[in-house]
Simulated assay, not measured.
Amino acid sequence: MRRLFPVTDQTVPTASGGSAGGPDDREWSLAELAAAYAYPEPAPGGERVPWLRANMVSTLDGAAQHDGKSQPISNATDMRIFGTLRALADVVVVGAETVRQEGYRPARARAEFAAAREAAGQAPAPAIAVVSASLDLDLSLPLFASPLVPTLVLTGAAAAPERVAAAEKAGARVVIAGDGAGVEPDRAVRALAELGHTRLLTEGGPRLLGQLVAAGVLDELCVTVSPMLTAGDAQRIAGGPSVPVPQRFALVSLLEEEGFLYGRYQRT
């Protein structure tokens, strides 16, 4: 059974032939999901400003992974939302460790979103932006060797010149977003916006998301709560140092299917 719990007046999926909040046994369409997760539109006559959202999955006991991967705690609808969020984004920002653990590949163009992306002035698929201080990357992977849209590498000004050169030779575009070895989150957001990427999506991992939270640059969190318990010592969806004062986010929409909750929260 699928249910919608409306929170705002925002367009969200509704039950087939019924009112919002009623049960619906059909699969949500990609168009409905795209409307439910649409990026905020700029004010009339205004410029589009960067909007950074994260998409993560967590078990009931707070695990973001099982055996190092998120797939075991996910489900088919979570993956449809995952694909929809990618299709709406200009760029997907991800940490180098997550690239290694999850075996990241280039984002693909999807026929269902081709017209909408063209109308929005977007490339056929979002670019992947890998955050790495060390640039210890396997540049032979398809993510670097054969992307539809050139992969970006975000790093600091102190990155090893030979590794910067190697990444560029492999076809990646290296973007400096910090004065030291690492990336400064606010600099990364600005640098991506300067490249025309204002609809930003991050898929973590937990360390990167924790850095974005601590820097105060995260505008939105899309989180799937999986009805599973894993125990163990898996990471939470965000790690690293705690913030001085907990940041408050407001619930925008909440979808439910077979115990999985798909929430969308925005910074207040």
Rank of each mutant, 00 (worst) to 15 (best):
G68H: 08
L255P: 01
L200S: 11
A87H: 06
S242M: 10
S146L: 05
A123E: 15
I128E: 04
A38Y: 04
S58E: 15
L88W: 08
G263S: 14
P23F: 07
R199A: 13
Y265E: 00
P72T: 10
A215C: 14
L201W: 14
A54C: 13
V49Y: 00
T230Y: 01
A160G: 00
P227Q: 11
P72Q: 05
A20E: 05
R100H: 09
L208Q: 09
A177M: 12
W28A: 07
R187F: 14
L4V: 09
W51H: 15
E220Y: 00
E97V: 11
P150V: 06
G240P: 06
L30F: 12
D25Y: 00
G232T: 07
A35W: 01
S226C: 11
P72W: 07
G103I: 12
Y104L: 11
E27Q: 04
L137Q: 06
Q247G: 07
Y37S: 02
E203P: 13
A191V: 07
A234H: 01
A145E: 13
T202H: 10
D61F: 05
Q235S: 09
P241F: 02
R190H: 11
P241D: 13
L212E: 09
A166W: 07
G263I: 00
Y262K: 05
P241H: 07
G232E: 06
L141P: 00
G178E: 11
L52D: 12
S242R: 12
L4Y: 04
A114Y: 08
R117N: 10
V175K: 08
L255I: 04
D9G: 13
A31V: 09
R2G: 06
R2D: 01
S134A: 14
G171T: 06
F113P: 05
A188C: 12
G239A: 13
P40F: 02
F249I: 07
A109R: 15
D78R: 07
A231F: 03
E184I: 09
G196W: 09
L30W: 11
G46T: 05
G156I: 02
T98N: 04
A158M: 00
A111L: 14
S226F: 05
V213T: 10
R248C: 06
D179G: 15
G232I: 00
P246R: 03
A38D: 07
G46H: 09
V245P: 00
L85D: 08
A54D: 11
D219W: 12
G95K: 05
V93I: 15
T155Y: 01
S19T: 11
A35D: 11
R48S: 12
P40T: 01
L33T: 01
L195V: 09
Y37W: 07
A54G: 15
A35G: 05
V49W: 00
L201H: 12
P185W: 13
E184Q: 15
V92E: 14
G240F: 03
V92P: 05
T151H: 02
S74F: 06
R2N: 12
I176M: 14
S74Q: 06
T98I: 05
V92G: 09
E258F: 06
V99C: 03
P23S: 05
I176V: 15
R2V: 03
P106N: 10
I81M: 06
S146N: 13
I73L: 02
A119D: 13
R207Y: 09
L141F: 01
R207E: 12
G18S: 09
